[in-house]
Amino acid sequence: MLKPILRRLGSGAVVLWAAASAAYLALRLAPGDTVDTLVGDGPDTPQIRAQIARDLGLDRPAVVQYVDYLWRLLHGDFGRSYVLQRPVVDIIGSQVWPTVKLTLLATAFSAVIAVGLAIVTAGRARWLRGLVSGIELSIVSAPGFLIGILLLSVFSFQLGWFPVSGDRDASALVLPAVALALPIGGLLSQVIREGLERALDEPFAVTARARGLTRSALLWRHALRHALLPAVTLAGTLIGFLLSAAVIVERVFGRPGLGEVATEAVNNKDIPVVLAVVMLAAAIYVVLSTLADLAYLLIDPRLRKG
């Protein structure tokens, strides 16, 4: 039991290191110069430039900068924002909660949408499944901002049920969360429905029905757990994807959050902030995929080795 967990943690560490290195490399190779950004409209002399470079350690060889950066990451030191002149941890910390709130609610919505649609339509008449599946596919294929704008124009501008933008109260959270949840719920629903139908074809489903079970008891008590196995793996990846989707949705709905922090930082070449965002996303991916593996053990006793 211990060995797989250690292996799991080891591969998680490798993923984090790879993410840190890739982000670092990408930012170094990107056009534009950090010193330019920092000088901005202020006085621009070679002395000032040299001073900035020295302060930030940019005058050292790239390898030294990279190793130093990894070393500090290891100690939880993400440095100071070049632009905002505040510790990166503070900046992220102040903006992370709105995004997490949004993502969690979107996750809950997508689970309800996926399981609900799949349970209602699995094994039903062909036309119904075709119709629902077609709607799901169109939503999955539509870009996130389009769904957001459509939701806004119907429920905010026309009906006035929800606020247009901002983060004043819980009601402001509903539309962005729905916009995020719809494509993911649609995709998961397809996977779960297929899993349900496969489970219903298994001999144990015939046995269960031969005991006098109702259709819904069969679906909820037997088939759903089988259908969740493939869905859990996908869900781990999709929830990670929610974070990047949240960046766009936050913009559409004018919400505070990591989306704003990340786009500003990229525009300004504010390397410490960008790197912190990347590391946060990578860490969340690692955590989610580990959780997905644990969920597997929870769902399927055959995977638990004695």
């Binding site: 001999p203 144990f204 015939v206 046995t207 031969a210 006098g212 037997h222 089988h226 399927d300």
Partner: peptide
């Protein structure tokens, strides 16, 4: 449903797949 299990029980081949493996 009232007949199944109460009036007639059904046993299929190979319980490895005829019993729900997750229960």
């Amino acid at each position: 449903r009232r007949l199944r299990g109460r009036v007639a029980g059904l046993v299929l081949q190979d319980a490895l797949v005829s019993l729900d493996p997750l229960n």
